[in-house]
């Protein structure tokens, strides 16, 4: 992927497909490290599936026999000297607290570090495509902290869909404003 934000878009699609009501996307930059955490309350994975998700020849899709999402993110993290970890609790064994957490650590100063790219565009695209699920997005560095929580917006909107054009435009500006200030 050209941008890390595109990997994020790709991985979060898995959370949505797992039936998550809430997916939390956190990007924390501290010194040389960038930690990406994607946590969802979806159905989770069994231990057997969890073991095979970093294998490119494992996929849930039916149109093709390869799945590159997680393997790509893992490779991109490891190329910088970082790592990827996945913790998952499957709904059958953890009926009350199921879900998946993907954590990827990157060394920002490594020459192979994929730039973050347009995170705002990724968040907007997720909300546009999945207006009925909630996302909490946090981007924290030593200089700023950007937060967007669709649950808060949903309360204000009272039934007006989050992917209404005017709303999407407002969200885009709302996040961008936080980066500037």
């Amino acid at each position: 992927m050209k941008e890390l934000s595109l990997n994020i878009l790709d991985i979060v699609e898995n959370s949505v497909k797992a039936g998550a009501a809430l997916t939390e996307i956190s990007v924390v930059e501290e010194g040389d490290t960038l930690t990406l955490t994607i946590t969802d309350d979806g159905c989770g994975m069994t231990e057997e599936v969890l073991k095979s998700v970093t294998d490119p020849f494992y996929t849930t899709r039916t149109t093709r026999k390869v799945g590159m999402g997680i393997p790509l993110l893992k490779l991109e993290a490891e190329l910088t000297g970082g790592e990827l970890n996945i913790v998952s609790r499957h709904i059958t064994e953890h009926p009350l607290d199921h879900g998946t957490t993907v954590t990827a650590v990157f060394m920002k100063n490594h020459i192979d570090f994929t730039p973050l790219g347009d995170l705002v565009s990724t968040i907007i695209t997720l909300i546009q495509g999945h207006p009925d699920t909630d996302f909490r997005f946090v981007h924290k560095t030593e200089k700023f902290e950007v937060v967007l929580d669709t649950r808060q917006l949903r309360e204000v909107l009272e039934g007006v869909p989050l992917n209404t054009y005017e709303v999407i435009k407002w969200i885009e500006e709302y996040i961008k404003d936080q980066y500037i200030n």
Binding site: L6, L9, D10, M68, S121, T125, G129, Y165, I168
Partner: peptide, 27 residues
Amino acid sequence: MATCGIAAGARPVLNAIVEAVNENGLQ
């Protein structure tokens, strides 16, 4: 918008469509 689509550039395509639909009053 699977891995293949995203890697090939689907995100700007989607956003351009959303913009154009609204610019042309087709929403």
